[in-house]
């Protein structure tokens, strides 16, 4: 036993890409392991220690009753509970199914529906109190480390609340929207990714959800002016964060 904070990583409905980012911290992974005890991390450990834990990271959306139970146990076991990645924060990619009847969605994926009892896909705060949110698909490694340091010090980590445009401008990227007419969600999406996609010539897909003063309705109007069909505008705002009040306004604005 050590006096290092004990960390648990839980997986719900997800691709496991966010917890993989812990291992992708490779250059500083040994420092992370030196600072915290990764007590429960099924992807990386053969033997996992039982709770209670100091920090629990929950990856994935909640899409069935079983996961609701698992999540509630996680909440009881952890002093601090963190939504790890966009699925856990606000539903993420799994939430694209929420606007289609449940049985229709299920039948698209599964042959035998008798054993399937899925629910709408929600972020974890639909069911439990959440202490911190790390957005992104996947989460940003820098923010993950920043959060761990904040937790160790007992202070709020410096996570960017503003739009992706700020980071895009700081990198002096050519604006894909105004220069090339490509419909980009960066203006209403939370930064912290370092404008990852626009820096590589691809528009922001909004994976990190709404920025702190997102005006999605106004951006939706611009999308239609730039020739996007109403159904495309809806798809854009519902791809990752359609459940958030801000992006749902964007989807419903046109």
């Amino acid at each position: 036993m050590t006096d290092k904070p004990r960390v648990a990583i839980y997986k719900m409905s997800s691709c496991a890409g966010c917890q993989l980012e812990f291992l992708n911290l490779e250059p500083v992974l040994l420092d992370v392991v030196g600072a915290v005890e990764l007590s429960y991390f099924v992807m990386a450990r053969r033997q996992n220690a039982p709770g209670p834990y100091d920090i629990g990271f929950v990856e994935g959306a909640i899409t069935c009753g079983e996961e609701i139970e698992k999540l509630k146990r996680a909440r009881q076991e952890c002093r601090v509970l963190v939504a790890l990645g966009s699925c856990a924060c606000f539903g993420g990619l799994p939430s694209i199914k929420n606007w289609i009847p449940e049985r229709v969605v299920e039948s698209r994926v599964y042959q035998n529906l008798e054993v399937i009892e899925s629910t709408k896909a929600y972020g974890i705060d639909e069911y439990v109190k959440v202490d911190a949110y790390l957005k992104g698909c996947p989460v940003d490694k820098g923010e993950l480390v920043e959060f761990i340091k904040g937790a160790l010090l007992g202070i709020s980590p410096h996570l960017r609340p503003h739009s992706v445009c700020v980071e895009c401008k700081l990198r002096e990227n050519v604006c894909l929207f105004v220069s090339q007419g490509e419909p980009c969600l960066g203006a209403v999406t939370t930064a912290g990714c370092g404008a990852l996609c626009p820096s590589r010539g691809k528009v922001c897909d909004g994976c990190r959800g709404p920025a702190n003063d997102a005006n999605a309705e106004s951006l939706a109007r611009s999308f239609t002016e730039y020739g996007l069909h109403k159904s495309d505008v809806i798809r854009k705002f519902r791809k990752f964060a359609g459940l958030t009040p801000e992006f749902s306004k964007g989807a419903e604005a046109v």
């Binding site: 739009s163 401008k169 700081l170 005006n215 106004s218």
Partner: peptide
């Protein structure tokens, strides 16, 4: 109602 509050105007 129009402004996206993206901050671009001030960044440039």
């Amino acid at each position: 109602q129009d402004c996206l509050a993206c901050g671009s105007c001030t960044m440039v």
